[in-house]
Amino acid sequence: MKWFSVLIAGLVLIMSGCSSMGGKDKEWAPPPMAVPLQPTIQQEVQIARTSQLLLRNDITDEQRAELHFQRGVYYDSLGLRELARYDFNQSLSINPAQAEIFNLLGVYFTQIGQYDAAYEAFDSTLELDPSNHYAERNRAIALYYGDRIDLSLHEMTQHYNDNPNDPFSALWLYIIEMKSNQTDALAKLEQRYAKKDDQWGWALVAMMLNKISNDEAILEVASGAKDNLMLAERLTETYFYMAKRYQLAGQYNEAVSLYKLSLSFNVYEYVEHRYAFLELGRIFSDLRAERQEQLKESEQGKE
């Protein structure tokens, strides 16, 4: 823990220096970072042990389904998506009544843009477990990325109303509302922020509302982190929503850089890490289409 205390102390100094440089739009240099997560001995041992158990002939189908699920979770935590999906499908082939697996597959399908498959997976989760709040949010987000904004807004509004103290539900509801009415979206987020509690995630809402600067948000987030793992997780989320703020403002260079920072900590199981890939792909596609349109107009002007 001593090295982590040094890291936080250095972070405080960096942020203090950045704060003294100017106003809310000033950039930090270098950005606050955590040590990227690496595979642990425990993860590797568990994968090896689970693989050995799956080779045995004396385990029951129930045990085999559980072992495939466990190994899939370990693979997923290491970013080995296809190996994880293989194990999840193997587990479902034995025991199809597993809500959590369908939720994980739904997020995976969202990440790679297979939205119809994602909707079906989340529907299966909620059929098996109607109280699964993560699946509710994930389905609304999948509808957002699938450009089914009205349905997404309806589901995310209902999800937020079930737990108005959740800052991440407030953030996603704001992001979805921005698709239809930016002024109303900002006003509604202000109203939700006025009812905030002491959860650290509300610092991200304050940042989205420009109530605090980037460096102030990072300092608040980092100061509550107890170790490198927590810092990496929180920075993954923070840089994602910071990138989304710039993206919504049309500042794509900043957004791309911040999405890459969100990816840099290797927190593979967080949806912010997964969706950062999706957001980067959408930005590059939009910029490519815009560039092609400009070239087309330029060619037409020469005729």
Rank of each mutant, 00 (worst) to 15 (best):
A194G: 05
L54A: 06
Y160F: 14
L235T: 06
L151C: 07
I283F: 07
M230N: 12
Q43V: 15
E293T: 14
D197G: 13
E233R: 14
D123C: 01
R56A: 13
R282K: 13
E290K: 13
D61F: 07
K195Q: 15
P36Y: 09
D87Y: 02
M21P: 01
D87L: 03
T60P: 03
L263M: 10
F102E: 01
W202S: 07
H159T: 11
E82M: 10
Y246K: 12
Q247I: 06
I283N: 01
N228W: 02
Q38H: 11
A243L: 04
Y75W: 14
S131M: 02
K302A: 08
Y252P: 00
P30N: 11
K188D: 11
R291M: 13
G250W: 14
A121W: 01
A84M: 07
E237S: 13
L37A: 10
Q294C: 05
E220N: 13
F168G: 03
E190N: 15
G10I: 10
Q292E: 15
G250K: 09
A206E: 09
S5V: 10
Q251M: 12
H68K: 04
E66M: 13
P36W: 11
L105F: 01
V107R: 00
I101S: 06
Y193K: 08
D215E: 12
Q46K: 14
F240W: 07
F4K: 04
K211M: 10
D150P: 03
A140L: 05
L13P: 07
F88Y: 15
R139Y: 13
S51E: 08
A225K: 00
R137L: 09
Q46D: 15
F122A: 00
L280T: 05
G72E: 06
A48Y: 15
E272T: 14
Q158F: 10
E100D: 14
S51H: 12
E254I: 07
A170S: 12
Q46P: 01
E62G: 11
Y75N: 09
E136K: 08
N132G: 06
I8E: 04
Y252I: 09
S285T: 15
I8G: 05
N210I: 07
R291H: 11
N89L: 12
G224L: 10
A232L: 02
V107K: 00
P39V: 09
A187T: 08
L13H: 04
K24W: 04
P30T: 08
Q191I: 08
Q90S: 14
E237N: 13
E136F: 08
P167A: 06
G250F: 14
G10N: 14
I175S: 00
L258R: 10
D198R: 13
D227S: 02
F240T: 02
L248K: 07
L11F: 06
S223N: 11
Y174G: 00
E216N: 13
L104F: 04
N95Y: 03
S16T: 12
H273N: 09
W172G: 04
P32D: 08
M207R: 12
S152C: 06
M156R: 06
L219N: 05
D197Q: 11
H133E: 10
D150I: 05
P31K: 06
A9D: 15
V73S: 01
D198E: 14
